[in-house]
């Protein structure tokens, strides 16, 4: 999956003359936490986050004082060394940028122009979709040997039952000998497919809780 499939194209932007107060209002009204700062050519020149604004605010013990702070232009507080990504970057790579740089959003640039934005929330939503938890389905977990072809074996068993797979994940285990395959299946009654999988000699990890062997 690439960034342009999940990025928001309708970006709220400000310019360097915008005041801090205007930036606060824009964030509050649209429930967003980041505002890219652009010039007249729609080129990105900085970014302001809710945290930058918090730093610029007087302490909550000083309310009513220093109201003039809010009239300063955002150019005084914006970060101009912005980390950005390209619409064709892979979502997987972009995820690790968030993780490495401890950032909450990533403006997307194409040909030096701002074309979109993605946030932590967008990434999390994508993850939820990848895990298939947004469609009616049952989850089963199968422990398999860590050798080639296991996923195909299990998928074939599921296919014979004519059950649609909503998502598949491959989890590592503590040792190197095994992997756990996690399927979300579009069925309310997975008993048949579970018994088929067990009949072929695989171990179903669910239902199981630590300390319990139901």
């Amino acid at each position: 999956m690439v960034v342009e499939q999940i990025m928001k194209r309708n970006v709220y932007t400000i310019d360097i003359t915008t005041t801090i107060q205007q930036a606060i209002d824009l964030m509050d009204n649209n429930r967003i936490r980041h505002l890219p700062v652009t010039n007249e050519k729609n080129e990105l020149i900085g970014i302001v986050s809710d945290r930058d604004i918090r730093d610029a605010r007087p302490s909550i013990f000083d309310t009513d004082k220093h109201e003039e702070y809010f009239l300063n232009p955002v150019s005084k507080i914006m970060i101009s060394d912005v980390i950005t990504a390209h619409p064709l970057d892979f979502v997987e790579d972009v995820s690790s940028i968030f993780y490495e740089h401890h950032i909450g959003c990533l403006p997307i640039e194409e040909d030096n122009k701002l074309v979109g934005i993605i946030t932590e929330t967008d990434l999390l939503h994508t993850l939820v979709q990848l895990m298939g938890a947004h469609q009616p389905s049952s989850q089963i977990e199968v422990q398999v040997e860590n050798v080639a072809g296991m996923l195909a074996e299990i998928a074939t068993i599921i296919k014979k039952r004519n059950i649609n797979i909503t998502s598949v994940l491959v989890y590592p285990t503590n040792g190197l000998e095994h992997k756990v395959l996690v399927f979300r299946l579009q069925t309310m009654d997975p008993r048949g497919v579970i018994s088929d999988i067990e009949k072929d000699g695989y171990k179903i990890v669910w239902p199981h809780l630590p300390g319990m062997t139901p």
């Binding site: 009616p136 389905s137 049952s138 069925t187 997975p190």
Partner: peptide, 9 residues
């Protein structure tokens, strides 16, 4: 819990 059981929500 929908962690494993249908429909998951």
């Amino acid at each position: 819990t929908g962690r494993f059981l249908f429909p998951g929500t």
